[in-house]
Amino acid sequence: MTTQKMSRFRRAAVALALPAAVVGMVSACGDPAPRKAASAALGTSSAPAAPADAALHMIATNGHRLAFHVTPGHSPTLVLDAGGGEDSSYWDALVPQLARETGSQIITYDRAGMGASDEVKGPWDGRAAAGDLRAGLRELGVNRDVVLVSHSQAGEVATYFAGANPGVLAGAVLVDANLPQFFTDPQIERLIALTTPQIEALKKQPSTKQNRQLIATAEDFGPTHRAYHRANWPDGVPVTVIVSEQTPFVGSPQDARRWHDAAAAFVAAGPGRTLVTARGSSHDIPEDQPALVLEKIRQMAATAR
């Protein structure tokens, strides 16, 4: 396995809070490296370049600083949150087109430990990440009419954010996101058993931001995701769920089926929820089918005006 392809394996594992680490390993070794694999492997993603029109705001909260990139525009504000192991530059190709087509203010940001934001010691904590996002938006004066767009692990941030701040959100688009329904006790135990050997091996390798984030995600994985399984999306916040056809679990039909079933169960659990399947797409729907993601964001933003 080459350095670049191993980088894809690690990124896929973080992106889902571990599940793709083993079941996607064989396919990852045979796939071309994605857009950011080389820079991640070289450790050059610590200060990503933001879109040209975006202003950088370093915002302090709870003893650490977070990098927010703001492209000016009108309400509703579109907030784009990348998956695990990714920083705000994941959205750079979409931001200019979104700005042209919607005229909205657009915010991308680096969660703690990624991009230009400070690292925070300890296990991954979706609630803390949601608190960081709220603190950043409050500092930027964004307190209502937000459309939150969340990919992969950022689905956990979105769920906790929506539960704590339903009045801030006008809607959300969850892009192949981690959803509470997926993390049943049997599934959690399966994921821990599958990924523990890879995490132990990773601890012996040179330390990078991506490695440290993966290890943090693995720490307390069971309790963290049992708690997340009990989280609820508020009925008053409309949401579009885009699920990939391939899912993150290439080579594991059992896990792929559970991923699709979880998306369907989430949509059936409340009003104002729509399920869309990205036909032929991998887990990286924003890269494979950007037009579909743009369309669903535009539609959600239109309802918020």
Score class of each variant (00 low, 15 high):
133 L>I: 09
144 R>D: 15
200 E>H: 00
99 A>N: 03
302 A>G: 14
256 A>M: 08
77 T>I: 11
113 G>F: 04
152 S>M: 01
105 Q>M: 12
19 P>C: 07
45 S>I: 12
165 N>E: 12
188 I>E: 03
80 L>Q: 07
95 V>G: 01
9 F>P: 00
58 M>H: 02
103 G>M: 06
254 Q>N: 08
56 L>H: 04
230 R>T: 13
38 A>N: 03
147 V>L: 09
298 R>G: 15
8 R>C: 01
27 S>D: 12
101 E>A: 15
67 A>Y: 00
168 V>S: 08
188 I>Y: 01
42 L>S: 11
185 D>R: 14
141 G>T: 01
178 N>W: 00
50 A>P: 01
279 R>D: 11
240 T>S: 10
108 T>I: 15
31 D>H: 03
290 P>K: 13
267 V>H: 08
57 H>Y: 04
50 A>V: 05
197 P>Q: 06
207 S>I: 13
279 R>Q: 13
253 P>N: 13
235 D>V: 05
231 A>I: 02
289 Q>G: 08
17 A>K: 00
18 L>K: 00
229 H>F: 11
235 D>Y: 01
207 S>M: 11
15 A>V: 01
82 A>D: 03
161 F>K: 04
242 I>T: 04
131 G>E: 14
103 G>C: 08
121 K>F: 09
71 T>P: 06
149 V>T: 05
227 A>N: 10
49 A>G: 08
32 P>F: 08
194 L>M: 12
269 A>C: 06
54 A>L: 03
104 S>C: 15
114 M>P: 00
17 A>P: 00
181 Q>P: 03
182 F>R: 01
35 R>T: 14
167 G>P: 02
85 G>C: 09
34 P>L: 05
33 A>W: 02
302 A>K: 13
51 P>A: 04
152 S>C: 07
1 M>N: 02
160 Y>A: 09
54 A>G: 04
274 T>D: 12
45 S>Q: 14
166 P>H: 02
296 K>D: 13
68 F>R: 05
7 S>G: 12
8 R>K: 10
289 Q>M: 11
222 G>K: 12
290 P>A: 14
88 S>G: 08
242 I>C: 06
260 H>E: 11
46 S>V: 12
225 H>M: 14
141 G>L: 03
287 E>R: 10
136 G>D: 09
194 L>P: 00
268 A>W: 07
49 A>F: 01
292 L>C: 14
163 G>Y: 02
121 K>Y: 07
235 D>R: 06
167 G>T: 10
218 A>L: 02
175 V>N: 06
58 M>Y: 00
44 T>K: 08
156 E>L: 08
101 E>N: 14
134 R>L: 12
239 V>C: 15
251 G>S: 11
176 D>L: 06
290 P>Y: 13
272 G>W: 02
253 P>I: 13
16 L>M: 14
259 W>Q: 03
101 E>V: 12
178 N>D: 11
51 P>Y: 04
175 V>G: 07
165 N>L: 02
32 P>M: 10
151 H>R: 05
162 A>D: 00
123 P>Y: 10
252 S>F: 05
33 A>M: 09
301 A>H: 09
274 T>H: 12
108 T>D: 09
